[in-house]
């Protein structure tokens, strides 16, 4: 048979070089990043508590020796997720050399969210870079609580979100992140082979609810600052 090599075994491919293996890497890193955005959102909710709680939480994070491991892991997940997904998108695009004249309709159609995942990813990349420049590498205000000097991130956040352009850009980017998550969380489970006839519709619901919690939680912060702390 033409697909068998000489020794009689079937031609196979490595996990990392197969489309399924690559999708599974995108899924695992995606789920990792989904976990990160949830904890990031929850931590930032301290903005509603007050400057001291917010700054001390940030201080506790950056002074933890494990921060470098965590950051390295995050960067690795982010880059792997992005590069593998973009590479897959490119080969997916090339798998159809001539496009249809008409789009499918009804149940056979795909949603705009599903077709634009790569673009959402690029927007989230741009957002992340600008976000790091604005905050992590932004102006260094200091605060002092009980003799411990630390960065006054709270002051910076309040300052940044007085600017309507910033608030608008954050709202747009976070809504895009929400759509990305609403597809991604559920899709990752399916890609990793987690599918059960009884729970399947709940997986979809969980994916959407997860995206809503992260997005609404994050959005509440610039909106709170702009309208109530102005």
């Amino acid at each position: 048979m033409q697909n068998h090599s000489d020794n009689g075994s079937v031609k196979t491919t490595g996990w990392m070089s197969s489309t399924i293996g690559r999708k599974q890497l995108v899924g695992v890193t995606g789920l990792g990043l989904s976990g990160f955005v949830l904890t990031h959102m929850l931590g930032n909710m301290l903005i509603l508590v007050g400057p001291q709680a917010y700054n001390q939480y940030a201080h506790a994070l950056v002074t933890n020796p494990f921060i470098y491991i965590a950051e390295a892991g995050l960067i690795a997940m982010f880059l792997a997720h992005m590069f593998i997904a973009l590479r897959l998108s490119w080969s997916n695009w090339n798998a159809r050399d001539f496009k249809y004249a008409m789009r499918p309709s009804g149940a056979k159609r795909t949603t705009f969210t599903q077709r634009s995942l790569w673009a959402q990813g690029l927007l989230i990349l741009a957002f992340t870079i600008l976000h790091l420049i604005t905050f992590k590498y932004g102006p260094n205000y200091t605060a002092n609580y009980g003799g411990i000097e630390m960065r006054d991130l709270h002051k910076l956040v309040i300052e940044v979100f007085q600017e309507p352009v910033y608030v608008a850009w954050y709202i747009v980017a976070l809504i895009v992140l929400g759509f990305h998550l609403s597809h991604g969380v559920g899709s990752s489970l399916q890609t990793l082979g987690i599918h059960h006839i009884r729970y399947q519709r709940h997986f979809k619901t969980v994916s959407i609810v997860y995206a809503l919690i992260v997005t609404v939680g994050f959005l509440s912060q610039p909106i709170y600052v702009y309208f109530l702390r102005g």
């Binding site: 196979t12 491919t13 897959l88 080969s91």
Partner: peptide, 17 residues
Amino acid sequence: LGMVAQMDAEGFGACTN
């Protein structure tokens, strides 16, 4: 292993679910 390898070798795209 064999069928997935052949599927990829044929140039079909990946699944977006």
